[in-house]
Design a protein around this nucleic acid. Structure first.
Lengths: 204, 204, 204, 204
DNA sequence: TATGAATGAGCATTCATTCAT
DNA sequence: AATGAATGAATGCTCATTCAT
């Protein structure tokens, strides 16, 4: 099973097929859910034969696994990267950046992230459990962000942080259900609006 | 097709089976999604034979249709009923009551409401479209609530109301993904917390 | 899953389908082996649809299981029944009867027995192991038959009994590979000839 | 298609791969049967790629063909060679040697012979027919052996030879189903025992 | 001399649906 | 009012086979 790119400059044909499968799967999973998506649909969208999928993946489950993984990693990396560039911003600014990066990853960065958000809740245990670890890590990352802000007095001390984190991420994640991706700068605007509602609510 | 209760005092056996099917379906749709749920699973949970389902419903789609409908109507009615009892409360108090009623319907009132919230987004057009009307009506109901509050000066005038409504309902709906229903009064607490975060953010 | 006949006089339609599947499977397994036989072939021969097989059986493996079981039980019961009727025959006569009964079961009693003989050796462990117990019981039954004969002096004392049993059963079983079932009384003739060679040998 | 050895002293790499395929196939056919064996399994065992098999063979059928052929020729040659060395032995001694040579070929000489014995009966006509000729020739060879013995008075005149030949070869062939190859001299012992039963019988 | 990539027909199995009773 | 029996289209998956390189 070919997993390494042959080269830096050249993307092997094989690599391309593999990615086409993954991207098609992500798109369909996102729109229709996991069990409503057939391998034949994935193959059609990737412009290969259904049987060929098994050259690259062991099973439909294995495709989902990779889609789910890729999805969360893109969000996580997007947020971490943005905050690394933040320098000495205030806590509120940092959280604002995290909100924007989370939303950008959700809406710009292909279907992987939104597929993850949308379908995870309805998956059977067997498919969920491999992803618990990263999900928890991402939650802890936000908890630290919020906790630092609270310690610095930028979030009221009577706010419980874990419900707050759930509330914030929930509000962000729900945007994939209705948000229109087409307009330029719309994500930035959405981010600022969201931050404003949340923050002016939690500040002392 | 038997749709009317035979009597006010007695619930006919037939009526009971029909409801058992609906409740079983709602529970399973909520947990597993629509297409991952089989008629056999629904029949098992309702303690009847799979074939018997067709005595009450024309198709799997028809069951979903009713589950979806029931789900949103319960939320809508719950909210309307609560506000009718509100009397001359302030706008903020009215919205707080609406939030609580929405959450109560979502978490207390069986699986119909949460099934609706969870699976609607992944359904094919054919299954979504019959429900657009009520959904829009419910959205307009909230829009009026928020708009009245804004006119009365209880919401900042620079806040755009439609994004606000989406944000608020999104935050509420997302709670079905993680909220633990078991604890008493937990829903009330959640409602107050949510209202506080949102409101102290939007108030002037 | 319906397993009991509804009645003594009437064979239910359901029971008939179940048996038709089993008989078709036995015939095809015998001729082509297990893995070369498709469910579609079984269904065609049983004059039902392939999907309908799953109303009666959980899997192809489950069909094989029952075919295998039925096959050996028919031989075993056939031999036991014949010997019960034998009364006070000599040991050699008893063994002669056992040989005949084994051959009759193998050739007359449908395809179950010969399917069992023919395909067992090439089956994967998973399919073999449930049948080890009966097979061993049948082997022990023959061992006792031969051992009694030896104790009574009707078999030379220098003959090792286990290799002898294997030899005898092997010679009998092999007949399914070439024997023509069509002629009347052919099985009886074959049985007598086999018994004669085994007991008396071929030398003058 | 490379079929000739390049050289007497050197076995070309190509030749080695070809033989590795054949040997792997024989081993797997013997254990699992023809249709349960995949080209991928054969390739794995031969330590090449599945696609490469087609450099040496036209099809799976073609591999079987050669395995089958090789198998019977090894038995046939083994028996002929042994009898050529026999000199002026008695007929019974000659048959004893044939029995031993047949068993040696079956158990010592790799998987080709036992694969042939085990799977031939379940093969479709198309795969059987090319091998009828050699099989018949081998049968005739045994018939002559037995007929000579009968003419010389070493086999009772009332024994029909063709059923006898089938019986004897059947008894020998069946040993592949159960015989343990590991012990030294076990085959010789088995051969002597078999010859004794056939010639002298088991009675005292 | 050999292989990586892909194919497509076919497989066991599932499932919504039907219908005589 | 309900079911047992059956269907057939579709699903995830396998596998012998092909072919450019």
């Amino acid at each position: 099973m070919p997993r390494e790119a042959a080269d830096v400059s050249t993307v092997s044909k094989s690599q391309k097929s593999r990615e086409a499968i993954l991207e098609s799967a992500a798109k369909l999973f996102r729109r229709q859910g996991y069990s409503a998506t057939t391998l034949r649909q994935i193959a059609d969208l990737a412009e290969i034969q259904a049987g060929s999928i098994y050259y690259y993946f062991d099973s439909k489950d294995a495709i989902l696994d990779e889609v789910l993984d890729e999805g969360l990693r893109r969000v996580f990396n997007g947020v971490k990267l943005r905050l690394k560039q933040a320098g000495d911003a205030s806590h509120r600014q940092k959280i604002a950046l995290a909100i924007e990066a989370h939303l950008v990853a959700l809406h710009d960065a292909s279907d992987f992230t939104s597929a993850n958000i949308r379908i995870y809740g309805q998956l059977p245990e067997r498919l969920k459990s491999p992803h618990r670890a990263i999900r928890r890590a991402y939650a802890r990352y936000w908890d630290r962000l919020l906790s630092d802000a609270q310690k610095a007095g930028e979030i009221r001390s009577d706010i419980e942080l874990i419900p707050l984190r759930i509330f914030v991420l929930g509000a962000l994640n729900w945007t994939v259900e209705w948000f229109d991706l087409s307009k330029k700068d719309a994500v930035q605007k959405l981010a600022r609006r969201t931050e404003s509602i949340i923050f002016d609510g939690v500040k002392r």
